[in-house]
Each structure stands twice: as structure tokens, then as C-alpha cells.
């Protein structure tokens, strides 16, 4: 049985992210105060503290910063950090892969799969071929 992602528990300020995820869009927060993108999303920029943070659609492309195959659990899975083209690194999973052949730096693309809540999708990544 494949690993079933636990459902996220959205907060009021993260609703747009999780709604977009259900429409196949990866949103990240950009700051109009300092120009930086950050992860995870917050109403106030973690760099300059400005509240002028806006959601922008990310390209959905990135590279593996690191990965870990959790082998000794009932449903093994790959935990990973992916560095997005826009700059920041997010925690996620790499799916549909041979875990032993994954390499740091591999290019990956986002995809959205159902979580334990069948009405909520979560962003995971596949290796680009």
C-alpha cells in the first residue's frame, strides 16, 4: 500500500495555498517589501517583517536538496527537501521513483495527490525524465 499523506490542517492565512493545491497550482509567498520569496508561507515576511506578502504561482520546478528513504515503516516513502526555482526550499515527498537511484540535484516537478482527507491534495514531486 502506498504511503497515505496525513491531511494538512490549514490555518486562516494558508487557505489560499491549500485551495490552489486542489486546482493543481503551487503558490508561494513573495515579499513586495524586500523582493524575496520564502517558505513556509507567512503573512509577514521572515526577512524584512513586511506585511506586503503576496501569493504567486510557482513554476513547480525545482531540484532535490536532500532526500531520505524511510524503509522500515509499514508503507515506505521518500521524505525530501526540494529547492524551488524561485529560491526557497520546501519539505515534500518524491513519489513514483526508485528511491535508491535518487540523487541530490536531480530536477523534479510538482504534482498534487490526495491526502488522508480525499478532498485535500498535497504537493509532492516526481523526477523529471
Amino acid at each position: 500500500m502506498p504511503f497515505l499523506n496525513p491531511a494538512p490542517t490549514p490555518t486562516p492565512d494558508s487557505e489560499p495555498f491549500w485551495q490552489a493545491a486542489n486546482c493543481g497550482e503551487l503558490l508561494i509567498k513573495h515579499c513586495e517589501g524586500c523582493g524575496q520569496a520564502h517558505w513556509y508561507p507567512r503573512p509577514n515576511c521572515p526577512f524584512c517583517a513586511s506585511d506586503r506578502t503576496v501569493w504567486r504561482k510557482a513554476s513547480g520546478r525545482g531540484t532535490i536538496q536532500s532526500h531520505c528513504h524511510l524503509r522500515r515503516v509499514a508503507d515506505p516513502y521518500v521524505l525530501a527537501y526540494v529547492t524551488l526555482e524561485e529560491g526557497p526550499t520546501m519539505m515534500t515527498n518524491i513519489i513514483d521513483c526508485d528511491p535508491d537511484s535518487l540523487k541530490i540535484g536531480d530536477p523534479v516537478t510538482v504534482s498534487f495527490i490526495p491526502s488522508a482527507d480525499p478532498d485535500q491534495r498535497v504537493p509532492v514531486f516526481t523526477v523529471q525524465v
Binding site: P6, A7, P8, T9, T11, Y77, L79, M91, V124
Partner: peptide
């Protein structure tokens, strides 16, 4: 919400 769904 940004980590638990991925099995951290």
C-alpha cells in the same frame, strides 16, 4: 501543516 503531511 507544512511538514506533517509529508511524514516528517
Amino acid at each position: 501543516q507544512w511538514e506533517h503531511p509529508f511524514g516528517l
